[in-house]
Design a protein around this nucleic acid. Structure first.
Length: 274
DNA sequence: TTTTTATGGTCAC
DNA sequence: TGACCCTAAAAAT
């Protein structure tokens, strides 16, 4: 169940658990057998996260100096159903449909339900990155690119937030929660928002994503406890202001829901006015 | 035990 | 706009 924070968390966690080691890689389910065969025994050098995409860089085993051309990149996109499972090594044989298993000395990571699990040749990677907007969780992200993208389009801000070419990493929860936190009416045309409010929206999304990365879950209540440990104890359903709620956490009024950009949008008509 | 649900995205029409 | 892909776990029976 991944938005950008989950993806960046996975990159950090898996780098800590598997990074620097030669990994035993297989496809228990068989659907990524070819990928596994190419990567088996290689050394995981780094994991890059861009929006909801993960790029794993693998070097040949036993090679001190690695040329760029010798690296292979594994591209994983969790989609809606994708999940990671972390076990201590040695792990029990996988159950269910596990697309990939990566075995390190200390930890084993299983991958299931993913939309993408492929080797990514450099030219294809270029194309992929070219159609991703700035990712607020990356230090090289350019907020002005987001502001400019909003000004260039004439779609609702709610649609714009879901467009990975406008901003990478936002999903259906953060869309609803960021708009609510900024008191923005979701149907406002993106090019009518103005630079100042656009930048404020960027900063809000960035702050919420960073907090989500820290907490490893989404908690957007304005009065939530400060420590991540305490925040993690809040039941998921109760940790948001409008997403999937009947009543708005802030004002108690009814939350509206409607399909927008193929997903259900939740918003509070009392708090979010034009 | 079964049905439903999900924080995503692509492709064809 | 709708069909479809992918899988586990929560919710309903």
């Amino acid at each position: 169940m991944p938005e950008g924070h989950t993806i960046h968390a996975a990159a950090l966690d898996q780098m800590r658990d598997l990074g620097g080691e030669a990994l035993q890689i297989s496809s228990p389910q068989g659907r990524a057998a070819d990928v596994a065969e190419h990567l088996d025994g290689r050394v995981l050098r780094r994991i890059d996260a861009y929006g909801k995409h993960l790029l794993y860089r693998f070097a040949p085993a036993g090679q001190a100096r690695v040329r760029r051309a010798d690296l292979l990149t594994l591209h994983i996109h969790l989609g809606l159903f994708g999940k990671f499972f972390r076990h201590a090594s040695p792990a029990a044989p996988p159950t269910g449909q596990k697309r990939l298993r990566m075995v390190g000395e200390r930890f084993t990571v299983d991958v299931s339900g993913v939309t993408v699990c492929d080797l990514l040749p450099p030219p294809v990677e270029e194309k992929l990155l070219a159609r991703l907007g700035p990712d607020p969780l990356r230090s090289d992200a350019d907020p002005q690119a987001f502001v400019a993208a909003l000004a260039r389009r004439r779609i609702s801000i709610a649609e714009a937030l879901m467009d990975q070419q406008v901003i990478a990493g936002v999903g259906n929860v953060y869309r609803a929660e960021a708009l609510h936190a900024e008191r923005l009416e979701p149907h406002v045309p993106s090019n009518e928002l103005g630079d100042e409010r656009a930048l404020a929206l960027w900063n809000r999304v960035a702050e919420q994503l960073r907090q989500g990365l820290k907490d490893r879950t989404i908690v957007t209540l304005p009065d939530a406890p400060r420590t991540s440990t305490a925040r993690r104890k809040i039941p998921r359903r109760e940790a948001k202001c409008v997403y999937k709620r009947d009543r708005c956490y802030t004002c108690g009024g009814p939350v509206f829901q409607e399909p927008l950009a193929g997903r259900t949008l939740w918003w509070c008509p009392h708090d979010q006015v034009r």
